[in-house]
Design a protein around this nucleic acid. Structure first.
Length: 214
DNA sequence: CCCCAGGCGTCCA
DNA sequence: TGGACGCATGGG
């Protein structure tokens, strides 16, 4: 109960301070899936350049990317960093999409199945899988990231060794299962992290959650 | 010059 | 099982 109140309090403060974030930035489920892979440990502005390259070349479809060599794909996504690695990861994801009969068919799988299928792809871990499940498939799964850990830890809401699934469990057992809520909450956490919870600044000047610190 | 970014897989004790 | 390390570009 105590935790549930704290989590709702955090959400209210973030929403009051930043307003709706309108995630995920992207025009289609497939674009969201590609972006989810490209943004791994990478600034979103770099991902935008890579996606713009794919769009400009008319290649932002599963069929077009599947027909492209890994080398050519890597060159197009170069601005997103780790381009060789991510080209291979996108190819792995494309294989799953083809195997499942397309993006629509894949995303229509039951939530638990979809999550397992995505986690079975080499290069897709918990955050990338959950981002796709929530933002591309629209299912109520809470997405956790490094900011989530840093913010919750700094405000004394979790222990330092709390792992991905434990953090996810904290949110999902104390919040109502609501896609719109999960969507905004994770996006707001990222927004807060970027502006007020940098690794290099343990003191978060002007943080809208300042009063939470006990 | 430095540090950092919306992670993940591998390796090695 | 868990901690280091590689992957890489672009912005502050």
């Amino acid at each position: 109960m105590r935790t549930a109140e704290a989590l709702h309090d955090v959400y209210q403060r973030l929403m009051a301070h930043f307003g709706p974030q309108h995630w995920w930035p992207g025009d289609s489920p497939f674009e969201i899936m590609v972006g989810a892979v490209l943004t791994q440990n990478t600034n979103w502005s770099n991902v935008e350049k890579a996606i713009a390259n794919l769009k400009a070349a008319g290649l932002l479809t599963p069929a077009a990317l599947a027909a492209l060599s890994a080398e050519k794909l890597a060159e197009l996504i170069r601005p997103a960093g780790y381009h060789n690695l991510k080209a291979a990861r996108l190819k792995n994801l494309l294989a799953l999409i083809a195997e499942q009969g397309g993006v629509e068919a894949l995303l229509a799988q039951p939530t638990a199945t979809l999550r397992e299928l995505l986690l079975g792809v080499k290069g897709i871990g918990p955050e990338t899988a959950d981002s796709i499940v929530l933002y591309a498939a629209g299912r109520p799964v809470f997405v956790v990231d490094t900011y989530t850990h840093r913010i919750l830890f700094r405000h004394g809401l979790i222990s330092e060794d709390c792992d991905y699934f434990q953090m996810q469990d904290v949110f999902m057992t104390h919040l109502e299962e609501d896609v719109a809520l999960f969507n905004e909450y994770h996006a707001l956490i990222v927004r807060l992290g970027k502006e007020f919870c940098k690794k290099s600044k343990p003191r978060c000047e002007g943080c809208p959650l300042a009063e939470l610190a006990a």
